[in-house]
Design a protein around this nucleic acid. Structure first.
Lengths: 143, 143
DNA sequence: TTAATTACTTGCAAAATGCAAGTAATTTTA
DNA sequence: TAAAATTACTTGCATTTTGCAAGTAATTAA
């Protein structure tokens, strides 16, 4: 059964952090959002090297919070296809601003730089096109 | 001596989380950014009730990361006036988007709602005016 | 001159994290 | 078609982080 979340206050920032305010949750979302990674194994292979038990825990919590859903993988019954819900996709502006802020102050790999460059050039367009793409992930029209 | 941060990867999101990716750091920043709270005691009184040792730890880490600075309080030598650096002020777009996202999905207090309402009406104006205000916090022209 | 206030520190229990080694259901290979 | 991989986890345990309660030293107020 889903463990109930105790929100610390009625502040939108505080409540947001109660859901995804840790070192790993937003990285899982980043993987789905910007890098088309959608399986447990793909998440494990991301450069930050999340531990298997933490990954399992975060996937469950993100699912319970309504940010992601489990679906059957189009190519294999042994795999699970994780995808963002509309609530998860709506984190795009947050994730984009974090990327732009981080881009300003940290050493960044070329792959990530390519994304922030796009976001800088046309932020609303970047968000809109990615949002539409993510809405179609795993749908028939997409395969 | 400042403990060196081990960045997990060269991703702007990952590196950002390495700095402020926990349940408390952004709440301290929120207090300075949106509610004109600038002392240890004021941070302790915020509704989320941070523990004293955690607060001291986060203030140090945020200072070492370059997001905040300690200054002498204009009214009392017993107090320390914490303020955002430009790097911290530049989190305004991130904080604003988090607020708007949280506003969409959680129960929100009227005080916070007033802020998100302003941000929704004119996002660039909201960020610009707050940014200018924060740049003047603790300056002579401001007193 | 004594009592508050302010910004912390310290000690310890509880919770979260991280690592290594399983396991069960598929899928691929020989 | 049987054995070896793959995949998505779980489990046990050590380490780290968090949270609570109770200090403490430097101001400030009574």
């Amino acid at each position: 059964m889903p463990k109930k979340i105790n929100y610390r206050s009625d502040c939108p920032i505080s409540s947001s952090l109660d859901i995804w305010g840790d070192k790993w949750s937003l990285l899982i979302i980043r993987n789905m959002m910007f890098y088309d990674l959608n399986t447990y194994g793909e998440f494990l292979n991301a450069p930050e090297k999340i531990a298997t038990n933490i990954l399992a825990d975060r996937l469950l919590k993100l699912e319970e919070a309504g940010l992601i859903t489990k679906e059957e993988h189009p190519e294999s019954k042994a795999k699970i296809f994780y995808k963002l819900t509309p609530m998860g996709i709506n984190l795009l502006p947050v994730m984009t601003e974090i990327s732009l802020w981080g881009d300003k102050y940290f050493k960044i790999a070329p792959q990530a730089r390519a994304l922030t460059k796009l976001a800088k050039k046309d932020k609303p367009g970047f968000i809109k096109s990615l949002s539409e793409k993510l809405s179609n992930v795993g749908t028939k029209s997409n395969r």
